[in-house]
Design a protein around this nucleic acid. Structure first.
Lengths: 155, 155
DNA sequence: TATTGTTATACTCTATAACTATA
DNA sequence: TATAGTTATAGAGTATAACAATA
């Protein structure tokens, strides 16, 4: 990669911070980019009383009714212990129900309650608009390239 | 963006999870990408006894000796309360020293100790190699495009 | 024996507010 | 009054291990 297209400093308030090779660090850029995406999420969906992780779990249950708790967790790389507490909160909020699988009674299956379905349906448009808001600084081609490259990186 | 280049499902173990519009969500892709970058960091730098955030702070102090604690914190979007504890750990590890500014005694300036300089210098090559490892699934042009687009998105 | 999910513990990160010492 | 940093508290994310129920 050409050195010249690396950021090598940032301006913070009136001070110049030399970040040197950090500007070519994917980890660093991804962290800052994710903070930006979180700001956009809370800007648009701030009235949810819900964080992006919880909303994403709700979204996946909506799209995959009766999916195993463990499968949802692995698809989002959420650890089992954390998933238990996250689902506890969604159940407590009346949005999700747990059912133990009749064939394999170790398995917990997740579904949205009527309130959960209404909750996601009501916010679907805002959530999709959010994806437009995420693109504020990018044109269509750039956004398409960025998501394509991220998917390739993720593998 | 063309619908056809969105991911709409993932395979987790042997199950297919429909993620639908989530495949076009920058927030979702950034989260997964950052987890991937963390894995690479700990794969290469796992012997550090240090997380990416701490190493990044160390790196910035190395590049900006005597920088104000608050400026480093703001440049990485670390909150003051968290920064205090993070720097506490680095000081306790003998890598960083705090000095109060002689002109404005509210200000804390940060420097690396001799051990801190040795620590970063010894790991510089590994850290830069890490940036190569981050590119495993991308060719040079793709990596260059990805970092450029992330920078543009970050603004 | 291995797997699914829960419980428990500990530490980090985040968010907020109150506090100190300076300016 | 405002600012730089600290302390305190609480919630959320992460990591690990031990555990119960089931396969």
């Amino acid at each position: 990669m050409d050195k010249t297209d690396q950021i090598s400093w940032m301006t913070v308030d009136d001070e110049i911070v030399d970040i040197a090779e950090l500007g070519g660090s994917l980890g660093f850029l991804l962290r800052i980019a994710q903070l930006r995406a979180f700001e956009t999420f809370f800007g648009d969906m701030g009235d949810l009383q819900m964080n992006p992780g919880e909303f994403t779990v709700l979204w996946l249950i909506w799209r995959n009714p009766g999916m195993k708790q463990g499968t949802i967790a692995r698809s989002l790389q959420i650890k089992p212990a954390h998933m238990t507490k996250l689902v506890d909160r969604l159940v407590k909020a009346g949005l999700v129900s747990r059912t133990s699988d009749s064939e394999d009674r170790r398995v917990v299956r997740l579904d949205l309650s009527a309130e959960g379905i209404a909750f996601v349906s009501d916010r679907k448009a805002t959530f999709l608009d959010l994806h437009q808001a995420e693109r504020a600084t990018l044109d269509d081609q750039e956004f398409s390239d960025l998501t394509r490259l991220l998917k390739k990186y993720i593998g």
